[in-house]
Design a protein around this nucleic acid. Structure first.
Lengths: 226, 226
DNA sequence: GTGCAATTTTGCACACCGTGCAGGGTTTCG
DNA sequence: CGAAACCCTGCACGGTGTGCAAAATTGCAC
């Protein structure tokens, strides 16, 4: 089991005692988690996402099958966790005052000022690199988006405790469907020549699509045709 | 997906068009389909929905495990099919002119004039009768709602070919989340004393909740608090 | 250092899921 | 009637997700 690097209590140098030092235990957990995510990322680039099995991910991550399930409940759960991490970083920048006043515009402005993590766009491309197996991959992504909607719903509920739960639920779902539709449109344009590396223009185009999608929400529901 | 009965459509080896002749074969297919749905309905009332297994459904329906999978791809797929049947009956009553003008109001008016099939409300109650296993049941229902959103999206796309796909996707998702939130709120009120039979007042209360939810959509997004 | 307690990893077992395949029974129609 | 088309069924197989207990690892105090 590759038990290299026998480390002794480092205490290297005379640096500060680091009271809140994570400890090897916590560090290992982070390391394993990242290994699993990284392994999935690699595999998804090689074979259709829906064909990736837990065993493959576990083996490439260098852990047992059982350990994978100690960290994530399923493969979609890994994706949801990655997406949620990015989303959490974005939400953290929200100004509570602004979002309370006009949530859609606030969320819209968020993506305009801070942009979308490029890593996330990379996942979108990877997940759709092998379009052979359309049906199952669509299903997989749908569950992830539904997960994200539930996640956003809770975040909004935390941020706007006064808001009508019905409003929060509907808003979260609508916002995530904007992301979903944006991803689809964006990938469609990207489909012609799928690059290994995303160009800055690709990133900009994603932002444009998303802005237009959220604009539909902000502008109301009475203009169905483009 | 709603992968319906793939049991091969008839194609009648003979030349004659033979119009409205159901045929014994077709009748049997309908019968077993209803047997499967009925078996699930019964089981869901007895044990937590997430604990129902395919084997149980198949046995109670009087068919083999394998036959179940010939009709439905999974248990959530059964629910999605049932829901979609009801939804299709409602959508069929939509006036294309009205929906093209103001889709949300059109859908809202639909539920007000024609109501919600009581059978559907019965499913809501049955699916949540055993709240013990909250987590898994929520997950199960979430997949059904996501399925329905995809279904509604396709219906809207058929009804409004001119509409912006982004608008259609967002609208479908938002509408279904209204139903989802309505179901939650409705069941919560019902929770105190859960009756075996639904009273007319219960039905009315569902309509009120739904109308308020869809009203949030129609009124726009700038009023987060109740 | 050493030993013990807490925690994590791992292998194993088990029930369940979803599908391909082939045999057998039933319906349809010439 | 008889062949063809069709549907049901059992079987097998790979995959999923979880409980359980043994083994390995880490934290901590002596």
């Amino acid at each position: 089991m590759l038990k290299g690097v026998t480390v002794r209590s480092d205490s290297a140098g005379g640096r500060g005692p680091d009271p809140a030092a994570p400890g090897r235990r916590e560090l290992n957990k982070v390391r394993t988690r990242e290994a699993i995510v990284g392994a999935l990322r690699e595999l998804v680039a090689e074979v259709p996402a829906a064909d990736v099995t837990v065993d493959q991910v576990a083996e490439r991550a260098g852990v047992s099958r059982r350990t994978f399930f100690n960290y994530f409940g399923s493969i979609p759960a890994v994706l949801s966790a990655v997406f949620a991490d990015h989303a959490a970083a974005m939400i953290a920048r929200l100004d509570p005052e602004v979002i309370g006043d006009d949530p859609v515009t606030a969320l819209r402005g968020l993506t305009r000022t801070h942009g979308i993590p490029e890593d996330l766009l990379g996942w979108f491309v990877a997940l759709n690199r092998h379009a052979a197996d359309t049906d199952a991959t669509v299903l997989l992504e749908r569950t992830v988006w539904a997960d994200m909607a539930a996640w956003l719903r809770e975040r909004l509920h935390d941020t706007l405790p006064e808001a009508d739960p019905l409003f929060v639920a509907t808003l979260a779902s609508a916002v995530m469907s904007c992301f979903q539709a944006t991803e689809e449109a964006w990938l469609k344009d990207l489909d012609v020549d799928r690059p290994q590396q995303l160009s800055p223009a690709d990133v900009t185009r994603f932002h444009d699509h998303l802005d237009r999608a959220l604009g539909l929400l902000a502008d109301g529901w009475r203009s169905p045709s483009a």
